[in-house]
Amino acid sequence: MNISMNELKANIIESLRLQDITPEKIDDDAPLFGTGLGLDSIDALELVVMLERDYGIVIKDIAEGRPAFQSVRTLADFIAVKRPK
């Protein structure tokens, strides 16, 4: 099943309580951390919570999530693979 990019971006915005930003403003390939959206280590943990809450994916070790958190696209790919059927 395809992951809706728009819905994922909306989930990210809601989960991290980002202000003054809409899904349209988030580029699929822009970096999430450091530059781009400028998220930090606690945001990464919040995304882990979001993955479980919205997609049923449980990440035990934050290192497992790191490659997935590069961009919205890598996150979507990760979800598509890991999402319980």
Binding site: D43, L45, E46, V48, V49, L51, E52, R53
Partner: peptide, 12 residues
């Protein structure tokens, strides 16, 4: 008890 557990941000 929310799905995904408690908020790490809020804990801080």
């Amino acid at each position: 008890d929310g799905a995904g557990g408690p908020s790490p941000t809020l804990f801080a």
